[in-house]
């Protein structure tokens, strides 16, 4: 048994009110510790709210911002206590999200792993949706690095933000890079109200399908934390989940209800699943790289597209008609 208690902070951040949201994070980290959690996960932009527009620059923090460091300090074991003396005195891992301003003044949507009183790892959002009701690329820069990170939980962790999980490569790369626990923090706006699906909301149904599929294909735990509440016209639907490495849901939080939800998992499930279903062992990275290199080169018109019809433009497999 490698038991881990995860606390899912399905909260409704206050738009643009950094100080209030920081105070709420401090309170929930304390509550998660008291509840015996080893990991607490907050949603995308939980410290700032989502629909920021020009507020983004006003709530941005550098990674050495004292407010962020103070939040990180709240994850440390109580001074003088052996780690794990009592649930509240032991340390905790916290995953939080905010607007990060880089040294060259770009603004990123960032998610950070806070552990042992410090900022252990930062992942910048890679894919910024700018279509439909989304306008993220207008206000933010996209991250360029994707890295799994070791963690105090004893396993590798892979962080991602919302839209990152709508790109197949992200969960796969994180798992191949050593993550056994994939975390996606989201501010997913509910839309496409429907009568004829399992949860009455098209967005939720799509996400539930993705999360189960990724957990199974990467044989990893998937932790999804989505916010609730309202920013302007948009309502966020919650529905945070923990999916086991066999693709089955361990826990599904209710839609729209704010709360701190505790979920117990056995991290030993990863080993069992990976022994039984060695998909990651059988991955063909060199094959993927070779074919990706070919596609990139063909799309750029540097080599002839070997899979295209006669007369197709570079990168397009089908000829114009």
């Amino acid at each position: 048994m490698q038991p881990l208690r995860i606390a899912l902070a399905q909260i409704a951040p206050r738009l643009g009110l950094l100080d209030e949201n920081l105070a709420h994070h401090h309170a929930l980290i304390a509550e998660a510790r008291t509840g015996g959690a080893g990991l607490v996960v907050f949603p995308e932009l939980g410290l700032t709210g989502y629909l920021l527009q020009d507020l983004a620059a006003e709530v941005a923090m550098r990674l050495d911002d004292p407010r962020l460091l103070e939040l990180a300090a709240a994850t440390a074991a109580a001074p003088g206590s052996a780690n794990g003396d009592t649930p509240a005195s032991g340390g905790i891992s916290a995953i939080v999200s905010f607007v990060e301003e880089s040294a060259d003044h770009r603004l990123f949507i960032a998610v950070a792993l806070l552990e042992d009183g410090r900022v252990r790892h930062v992942q910048r959002k890679l894919f910024l949706p700018t279509y439909g009701l989304f306008d993220e690329r207008r206000f933010f820069a996209a991250g360029d690095l994707l890295r799994a990170t070791p963690s105090g939980l004893g396993i590798g962790v892979g962080l991602s933000v919302c839209e990152d999980f709508w790109h197949l490569a992200v969960p796969q790369l994180l798992a191949l890079d050593g993550a056994q626990l994939l975390v996606n923090v989201s501010s997913s706006p509910g839309r496409d109200l429907a009568a004829l699906n399992e949860v009455g909301l098209g967005t939720a149904t799509s996400w539930r399908t993705l999360l189960r599929t990724y957990a199974q294909l990467t044989t990893s735990f998937v932790v999804f934390v989505n916010r609730v509440g309202v920013d302007e016209s948009i309502s966020f639907w919650g529905g945070s989940e923990v999916i086991g490495p066999n693709g089955d849901a361990v826990f599904s939080a209710p839609l729209y209800d704010e709360g701190l939800y505790f979920v117990d998992v056995d991290l030993g499930d990863v080993r069992r699943e990976r022994i039984a279903l060695p998909l990651l062992r059988d991955e063909r990275l060199e094959l993927a790289i070779r074919e990706l290199d070919r596609i990139v080169s063909e799309r750029a018109g540097q080599t002839e597209d070997s899979t295209a019809e006669q007369g197709a433009e570079p990168g397009l497999d089908v000829a114009a008609r």
Binding site: G190, L193, A194, A195, L196, V199, G200, L201, V228, G229, V230, S235, L255, Y256
Partner: peptide, 19 residues
């Protein structure tokens, strides 16, 4: 045009309160 009215009602109620 059929919708899940529980979800619609929940979203609208929270929208009114939030606004």
């Amino acid at each position: 045009l059929a919708i899940d009215t529980d979800v619609a009602r929940r979203v609208i109620i929270e929208f009114i309160r939030g606004q």
